[in-house]
Design a protein around this nucleic acid. Structure first.
Lengths: 219, 219, 219, 219
DNA sequence: GATGAATGAGGCTTCATTCAT
DNA sequence: GATGAATGAAGCCTCATTCAT
């Protein structure tokens, strides 16, 4: 079950068209954030969603709320991907480290890198919705890493946060770009990074393994 | 000799105070871009430089020109670092791959990641100043990579652009952050990425090696 | 029917209050342009129209668009005056040259002279709306002059453009003036000019008769 | 003797280069005002005069002073023209009305129309220099008109101000234009206006004859 | 509930004027 | 005396947000 669903279930009920509008706005916002950066005018998002601008405000009190919902939405989907990766790893004959690699590339395709620019000033990183999805994601990723470690394919000195931060950064879009340019290379660099993650360790890492909690504190 | 020097020498001469102001503005702009992103108000930059706002416009016709000069300034310093790394590698007993690692971490400390957000729409990536510094950087980095490859420590399937893109992305600051948060982990992730760069290759890379020319086309 | 009406009908529909604001802004702009010249701050126009400054930009993308609409609006009214003059001249017992004189003085009262300063750099004189109203005006003025010529009261060597240019110039307001000063004499000078237009010709004119097309090319 | 000379003689003495700069600035200012209107940036005038911007301020305390000096300079030259016209009319066989016509066209070529936009808000029309040149001009023009009246060629109901106002207005340049466009027709319209000035009167004029004093009050 | 319109605060840029060399 | 540079006060325009239909 996705976190987004639980969010929606909070309000008593919603008219079908209102619900449809809400989804369209989030989808449009994600696309616009990906393509034009975090400060795209809300009117543009409204136009892309084929909705009046005031409708955006009816659903999301201000820009920060909208950004948070987009983040939650993407993290939900990424968490789903991670869950599927764990399940596949647990299947008879599953290869945890191959599943980890697959997950990383799939998360990149979900534009997880586009979330970075949203974690800007004024973004409440301690909002319950965020905490919830973060915990879910951390738990399942921990499981995935643990599988790979147990299989002896993953170095021991890295944590969930290391993976997520680097994954996010390496796939971060350039502002004002439709991502077409960078996409050509993103998967190369992810592959290189993944190679670095594999054991035996190629070097001693400075610092300590990051958790998602550290990721929270970054901004 | 740095590219910036040649840029300044173009105009016949500059009064001492004007030159001082120019440098202060570029320094302030770099700091503000690093800390608050590409769209900090120019008035804030002026205040940080302890200069009237119009003075910024006297030196830099508009925001794009200022951004370009900051980019050139940083790339100049990074190129200098790379030159030193090559020189050290060529010293008797020099270790090319160790010098490459050192260079990567040093470039991170020069805030090269802060340049990414500047490569935004309206940024003229074909400006002569940029082409010049890019060529210089590419040449010296090529030399550095070649040394490491010859020493048998670097995979053969990566190019200068792969290194620079990943380095830039992994060190990119979060908007609205004084970089303190991410800095704790940046060097870990660089280390992991560097491990992935080392031979023998851990996996087959998709796509082809990137050049700095590709980096130009990204935006 | 006026050209302005056709312009408005282009957009599907407009809310009543928006339409009211639009008219108020044009009216305020005309007054401000007349009284304070072409470069009055748009904020002043907004204040005069009792409207927020951004509302001006909602209706008119930039200063040039607003100026054009004001020009069209005034030319529309002047064209209406000319049509009435032709109709009166065609009435039984109508005196074409007297109607011409009346038209000239009436056009002056419509502040047609205030349009001159608006035909400044950046003003698109080939905009469809302008072409349309110019053609309408030229046609009806041609008819009026032809009536007067046929009645033997108008010299043969002058064209529509001669009349409109001189009329505009002679009634042009001084910047920073509420027109009160010049108004005392404008009608005297128009009368003198009209006397010069009457036949028999008092002198040989240099150049050739101007058309409104020439007037367009002036700027 | 010109008024400008008397103005300069007020200050004790001037270095030769300073005097040359002063003249260059006035000449440049006149050209720029004619071509680009009254609000051309002073820096542009300085550049055209090949002089530093601060030098403009050394010679002319502020924009208004510079504008006044330009006005005085042009009126001086126009007055000289009028004096020559009177002299020619007084010559044996001189034709006062032909000289009047010649004077009007010559004054137009001196760009007298460009003065209108300078008579803007903040312009001190009662400055001694202006009063002086105005009196001189009025006296000599009065003489010229009187000659023409006596010769029976000029209507009796017009004054000096009527002539100067209409002359100025009809030759007024459009802002943002190099005057090339309007120049083609200016002399036609002056000719028409002059025809209207000739006797016998073609109509009864409203109002009363204008003096240059009225012209002063216009702005 | 949805919408188009209105608003005011704020950023960019220009320019008259003053200062320092 | 002449100059290039510095300055701050507006003006234009955008955009997040609120209001009226």
């Amino acid at each position: 079950m996705t976190t987004a669903a639980s969010v929606q279930s909070r309000a008593p009920r919603m008219r079908a068209d209102a619900l449809r509008n809400r989804e369209r706005i989030i989808a449009a916002a994600r696309e616009m954030f990906v393509e034009h950066g975090a400060q795209v005018p809300l009117d543009e998002i409204a136009r892309r969603a084929a909705v009046g601008n005031a409708t955006v405000y009816r659903h999301f009190a201000d820009r920060d709320v909208l950004m948070r919902q987009v983040v939650v939405s993407v993290l939900d989907r990424v968490t789903d991907l991670a869950e599927r990766a764990v399940a596949a790893a647990d299947t008879a004959g599953g290869d945890p480290s191959a599943e980890l690699r697959r997950f990383v590339h799939a998360a990149a395709d979900e534009r997880i890198g586009a979330l970075c620019p949203l974690l800007t000033a004024g973004f409440d990183k301690d909002h319950p919705d965020l905490i919830a999805v973060r915990l879910r994601l951390e738990a399942v990723l921990d499981a995935l890493l643990e599988r790979a470690r147990t299989a002896g394919r993953l170095r021991a000195d890295i944590g969930v946060g290391d993976l997520m931060i680097a994954l996010s950064q390496l796939t971060r879009p350039l502002p004002g770009t439709a991502c077409s340019g960078i996409d050509r290379y993103v998967h190369r660099h992810l592959q290189l990074f993944l190679d670095g993650l594999m054991s035996p360790a190629g070097s001693v890492l400075p610092g300590t393994a990051a958790t998602l909690e550290d990721l929270r504190q970054r901004a």
